[in-house]
């Protein structure tokens, strides 16, 4: 596997309890530079909960989450606020789409730039040269991202009026606007038709190749997962049951068993 120095995210023995329910049970996982890693498993396996712990939305019960931003010293981010995690360079999308529905598509992306800009109330009122430059840059970059995900024609529409696939892509663009080095996608293809899924496939590859952004994704669409992932982790009932390359996973009897009766999903 990959070299120690290149690991962007290292998760060790992560455990999350909800009352009596252990949703995530000692998961160890890492993502390295330039990788696309998939996290799969049946419904309720604890994948989303894993994301929520890693991105600071929940504070995990036990375990370590270490983030190694390129060119900076590594740090343990357990219990760090979500906005701090994002500012450090790890951004995410949501399984149940959480866009800012009554804001325009462009504004949604511009929010992503918030943590990379610094205009204060005073700056906004006085429209200082610096704040104007920042605003211009925010707008330009946001347009570029919309272009990249194919939403440029809808820039001024309300987010709630986008199609389902459009909303998923907007989530990606918004997360990208925070300039992450690691992008966490929670079921980006859910609800998309085959055509849209194929486009998503190439979008994800493009993000990885163009921006040198590593990707960790949760996905039920096995074709997509097998196509683009370098490595796959499999979870069931909160536990990791397998880990390996797509070929290894495909042949793993445990995985086949876990997915038995879930055939329709794949």
């Amino acid at each position: 596997m990959t070299d120690q120095a290149e690991k962007l995210l290292e998760v060790r023995e992560l455990t999350m309890d909800f009352g009596g329910l252990r949703a995530v049970d000692s998961i160890t996982l890492d993502v390295s530079k330039g990788e696309i890693v998939a996290l799969i498993g049946p419904n309720g396996a604890g994948k989303t909960t894993f994301f929520n712990c890693v991105t600071g939305i929940y504070t995990p019960t036990r375990g370590d989450i270490i983030l190694n931003p390129p060119g900076e010293k590594s740090r343990r981010i357990n219990g760090l606020k979500p906005n701090r995690v994002t500012t450090l360079g790890m951004a995410r999308t949501f399984q149940n789409i959480r866009l800012f529905q009554n804001m325009t598509v462009l504004e949604n992306v511009m929010i992503g730039r918030h943590c990379r800009t610094s205009t204060s109330i005073i700056g906004a009122v006085l429209r200082t040269a610096r704040s104007r430059a920042q605003e211009r840059e925010t707008i330009d970059r946001s347009y570029d991202l919309l272009d990249q995900v194919g939403l440029l024609p809808f820039a001024d529409a309300f987010a709630k009026n986008l199609s389902y696939g459009g909303q998923r892509r907007l989530e990606i663009a918004r997360a990208m606007a925070t300039e992450p080095f690691l992008l966490l996608l929670d079921e980006p293809a859910a609800g998309m038709n085959p055509q849209e899924t194929r486009e998503l496939d190439s979008l994800i590859m493009q993000i990885r190749n163009a921006g040198e952004i590593a990707i960790l994704l949760i996905e039920h669409d096995m074709k997509l997962v097998m196509n683009i992932s370098d490595r796959i982790y499999v979870m069931e009932y909160g536990k990791k049951i397998a880990h390996g390359t797509p070929q290894q996973i495909r042949a793993n009897p445990k995985v086949i068993e876990a997915y038995l009766g879930e055939e329709s999903d794949a």
Partner: peptide, 24 residues
């Protein structure tokens, strides 16, 4: 401005807002 947009985002969805790097 940047501040006003953050306010609106907060109104729309608090969790998504902090997850996008806005200090709540």
């Amino acid at each position: 401005s940047r501040i006003g947009r953050a306010w609106m985002a907060l109104r729309e969805d608090e969790i998504a807002c902090v997850a996008m790097g806005v200090d709540m």
